[in-house]
Structure formats: structure tokens, C-alpha cells
């Protein structure tokens, strides 16, 4: 039974799926926020990656704000009011900036549906005879 071998071989992958204990919540939040804030003085790095002094200070501020009990959104807003929208590593999902999300959401499925119709129209009419 050749398929048996493939079954065994393929099952290896999910078995190796990795399972680990969750880190404590505050640290996870801090790391998440680091990745969502850009370092204003670096070229295209988040404060998570950057070695710049400003990024270090910003990381400290994030931790302090978490300890003060602020929510993620409040912390992001704080930095936004201080450094402008470009400090967020993602455009806000509101107003004009929403178009960055909207275009992929609307354009891609419509092209895909168009493609399906294209294939349908390309299908050789001889087939039906």
C-alpha cells in the first residue's frame, strides 16, 4: 500500500507543531506595542528592532504606560499625539487611511470573480457540442 507511506510521512508535520506556554500578559502586550510603533529617527524600523536611543526611551515609556494601566489603544494614541500618525506602523483604520485596507478588500475579490468569468468565456464552445 504505497499511500500508507505518504500518510506516515505527512503526519510528521503536524506532530511537530509547536506548543509553548504563554508568556505573562504585560510582556506580550509590550512586545506587541513595540512592533506597532515606528522609531521616528530611524529609517523604516519599528522600536522593537531599533537600537537608537530614542527607541530605547520609547520602549521604556511603553512599559511605564502599561504599568499605569493604560490600554493598548490609549498608549498608541499617546505616541500618535506626540509624533504624528507616521509613528504607527499601520495606518489607522478610519477616514482616508482606511483606503489602504479597502483597496485590497474590494479590488482583489472583484478581479478574481472577473477571472472566473474570463475562464468561463474562454472555455471552448466545442466542448458543449
Amino acid at each position: 500500500m504505497p499511500h500508507l507511506k505518504s500518510i506516515i510521512l505527512c503526519s510528521i508535520i503536524p506532530f511537530s507543531i509547536y506548543c509553548s506556554n504563554e508568556l505573562n500578559n504585560d510582556e506580550n502586550r509590550a512586545q506587541y506595542l513595540f512592533e506597532n510603533l515606528m522609531c521616528p529617527v530611524c529609517d523604516g524600523q519599528t522600536i522593537s528592532e531599533s537600537q537608537a536611543q530614542l527607541a530605547k526611551n520609547m520602549r521604556d515609556i511603553v512599559r511605564i504606560k502599561i504599568e499605569e494601566g493604560l490600554t493598548d489603544d490609549q498608549i498608541l494614541d499617546y505616541f500618535k499625539s506626540k509624533y504624528g500618525t507616521s509613528v504607527l506602523s499601520n495606518p489607522p483604520k478610519s477616514g482616508f487611511y482606511f483606503t489602504v485596507w479597502l483597496i485590497p478588500i474590494i479590488v482583489l475579490p472583484s478581479i478574481f470573480i472577473g477571472l472566473i468569468f474570463l475562464i468561463k468565456s474562454l472555455i471552448n464552445p466545442q466542448k458543449e457540442n
Partner: peptide, 11 residues
């Protein structure tokens, strides 16, 4: 004419 914005990894 909008504020400068970043499009990063999450997007």
C-alpha cells in the same frame, strides 16, 4: 495632503 503615514508589517 494628509499627514505622513507608515504602512508596516501588520498590513
Amino acid at each position: 495632503g494628509k499627514e505622513p503615514v507608515t504602512v508596516g508589517t501588520p498590513y
